[in-house]
Amino acid sequence: MAANTVLNYLPRKSFVHQLTGTTKLAFFLLFTFASMITYDTRVLVGLMIISFAAFRASHIKLREVRFMLVFMLIFLILNNVFIYLFSPEQGVQIYGTRHVIVHLFWRYTITWEQLFYTLNISLKYFVALPVAILFISATNPSEFAASLNRIGVSYRVGYSVAIALRYIPDIQRDYHSISQAQQARGIELGKKEKLLARMKNSVNILLPLILSSLARIDTISNAMELRGFGKKKKRTWYVSRPFARNDYLVLGFGVLLLVASLVITFWDGSRFYNPFV
């Protein structure tokens, strides 16, 4: 009964996996910052190449993270559609020129500037996405907790994240069996039912799920307290690893990337690379 988790750790033997959680967290933050701040197409393309390369190096396969990918792509499309709906001349405003391809209706015109702007937004997603997925899938949750702790976050916070990840599969299993038992009482949750009815019927799963999860929480917190969780201000970690040479290299590389992208982006005083002038 292998419950497929949405956000799961996929253990591999790879360069990315061997980095410490702290390195991955720091690199993830540096990289995301770099990609958020810039709209410079050249920088974005450069970052995207690095991002794709890192994904390849992790030996994680695309279909293993399909759900997250699809989710993000839908988000990307929605984002672009809404930008266009609310602000069809955004690109023109930014780049200062107006090359019309075709006029649609009312205020909606497709311009080269707007298309280029949309391309840049999409590029940003493709830069950040692989690294984000990688961070989630290639970091052992306990190590993640340990690394949060190392960069100064309270271990209680870090551990609550790790423990949530530990129990997600259990709760998914609960959900699955509760839903089956409810169906066996004649409550249709299958694809035959209309969406609205299905949503209404899902309430019948929710209450038992919440109640059994609360019981779980009670047991866990007792078990944790009985074994001294929260006794001291600090704790050590079974899984935390010392920094290796690669960790320093990757961190250095991350800082370098950020600085480089900042420099290239702001060289000419604008966050945008403008091919139209």
Partner: peptide, 29 residues
């Protein structure tokens, strides 16, 4: 040792679960 063997399993792996009390005690790795 509590009644529910599943609910009291805190760690993500056997080793981490066994070491849980030691971690809380700041025992060196």
């Amino acid at each position: 040792v509590l009644q529910d063997p599943d609910g009291q399993f805190i760690g993500l792996t056997v080793a981490e679960d066994i070491a849980f009390a030691l971690e809380n005690d700041c025992v060196p790795q």
